[in-house]
């Protein structure tokens, strides 16, 4: 890659006025660095995985709405987490977190446990309990 070919496409980086450093060669073939505002093929891949997360959040919302899953699932997806990550944040076994995703079990959770989840999601216990999808 030549320094003048370092891509300057619009991306989520350029929206925040960030630039990333790339290695490229100058006219004489010597290595130098150049800043890039983004590269379209990369943005395509990144947007693809963002869309996947959005789909999962929407799906979770529906499942909470019809009463198949507890609000924990929605907030877990919203925070880009999976069961393992969430379990380590609330310091509980994964199988226990999995049980808490059942609406019936969720309803019986102690306020202490609910507080743990609320803290991780950075919301109030009320918001967690009253989320209906």
């Amino acid at each position: 890659m030549k320094a003048e070919q370092v891509p300057q496409d619009k991306s989520s980086l350029s929206d925040k006025e960030l630039k990333e450093l790339c290695y490229a060669v100058d006219d004489k073939g010597n290595y130098t660095t150049a800043l890039s505002s983004g590269w379209e093929p990369k943005s395509v891949a990144l947007n693809g995985s963002i869309q996947l997360i959005q789909q999962r959040v929407e799906e979770a919302k529906k499942l909470v709405l019809v009463g198949k899953k507890s609000p924990i699932v929605y907030f877990m997806e919203k925070n880009k987490m999976d069961l393992s990550i969430l379990a380590s944040y609330v310091s509980l076994w994964k199988w226990r977190v999995k049980r808490h995703t059942k609406p019936k079990v969720f309803k019986k959770l102690s306020s202490k446990t609910l507080q743990k989840y609320a803290d991780v999601f950075e919301i109030s216990v009320e918001e967690l309990k009253n989320f209906k999808g």
Binding site: M1, L13, L21, C22, Y23, A24, S36, W39, V44, A45
Partner: peptide, 26 residues
């Protein structure tokens, strides 16, 4: 989706482009 992940690992911030190949050339 798998192929998209391949690009991300190859071109993500930190690689200097081309799956670190340009950094190694430098």
């Amino acid at each position: 989706h798998y192929l998209g992940q391949l690009i991300r690992m190859q071109e993500e911030i930190g690689t200097g482009g081309g799956g670190f190949r340009f950094i190694y050339a430098a």
